[in-house]
Design a protein around this nucleic acid. Structure first.
Length: 297
DNA sequence: GAGGCGTGGTG
DNA sequence: TCACCAAGCCT
């Protein structure tokens, strides 16, 4: 695998200046960017994992109003967190955010920790979220590698349409090497914003791109992605769809539901039982002694 | 490391 | 229409 030549220092300086300037002029006014507390930033990052901004906005606002601190969330049942998660998807995130709040109260006196190590030790916090909270909540200088940043760097620096399937050490090294000495947290937000709004996966708006003149993918004539075929996520008829139906029944009920209510949500009994067992194993559903089911208490 | 895990907007 | 895609994490 040949590596692209490193970006000349002059080009790197231009990249920094142009992108930071573009971001300063055009950044979206998102609530978690408006002097939000570290906890609010963490809530937004959990919600934004694999979920678009537009769908996160209303749920985020309700959450930070209802649970303005880790202690406030930790004082509730995990089931309330799952219910308030609504239709954001991946409800295990709600469970993990609740567990993270509890850990923050237990281990950090109720204050979101600022070190990468402490953040990574929290449930539901991986490499991306730890770096994002460090950067956006505390102004830390960390390489923030999300799907947007990876695509931007693949194109602008490596000259390729898409990054590899999973994060490589080469990508981490590249991202670290590109970090500006100052304003690294703005750089992180700017590269994410460029990927989200301009350098998009399907139809990039190169005419509006502030660094189009530096982009190696553009200079190379937009060569098509040359790598393994990426598998789409199956959905119709899968256990995931079934789990979603069962969770919807539980979310919408005010309390425990009879087994019959779950049975009515999915026809295939074998698959339904398997999915329900999985939800119980995940801690998303509590089977009660009277043969009813509820969100975890 | 590959696969499982929700949901809805979009080209 | 219907795959594809979206600020990943965990096992």
């Amino acid at each position: 695998m040949t590596r692209p030549a490193p970006l000349p220092v002059a080009d790197l300086a231009q990249l920094h200046d142009k992108l930071l300037d573009w971001f300063a002029r055009t950044a979206r006014d998102l609530p978690w960017r408006r002097n939000a507390s570290p906890w609010a930033v963490m809530v937004s990052e959990f919600m934004l994992q694999q979920t678009p901004v537009s769908r996160v906005l209303p749920v985020y606002k309700a959450w930070v109003q209802r649970w303005p601190t880790p202690a406030a969330l930790a004082a509730e049942s995990p089931g309330e967190a799952v219910r308030a998660w609504g239709r954001l998807g991946y409800p295990r995130r709600a469970l993990r955010l609740h567990a993270a709040a509890t850990a923050i109260v237990d281990r950090h006196g109720g204050e979101v920790p600022s070190s990468l190590e402490d953040l990574l030790a929290l449930p539901g916090v991986g490499a991306y979220t730890a770096a994002a909270v460090s950067s956006f909540a505390f102004g830390g200088r960390e390489a923030v590698l999300d799907t947007n940043v990876r695509r931007v760097f693949a194109r602008v620096v490596r000259g390729e349409q898409f990054p590899p399937d999973s994060v490589t050490s080469a990508e981490r090294d590249l991202a670290s090497g590109l970090l500006p000495v100052r304003d690294a947290h703005r750089w992180a937000a700017a590269t994410m914003e460029l990927g989200a709004l301009i350098c998009t996966a399907r139809s990039p708006r190169c005419d509006a791109c502030p660094v189009a003149d530096l982009c190696r993918w553009r200079a190379a004539g937009y060569p098509a992605y040359d790598g393994p075929v990426r598998r789409g996520q199956a959905w119709h008829g899968t256990d995931r769809q079934c789990r979603g139906r069962l969770m919807a029944v539980l979310r919408e009920a005010p309390g425990p539901v009879p087994k019959s209510a779950l049975d009515a949500a999915w026809a295939d009994a074998v698959q339904r039982e398997r999915a329900l067992d999985g939800l119980v194993a995940d801690g998303l559903v509590d089977p009660l002694p009277d043969d009813t089911y509820s969100l975890p208490r």
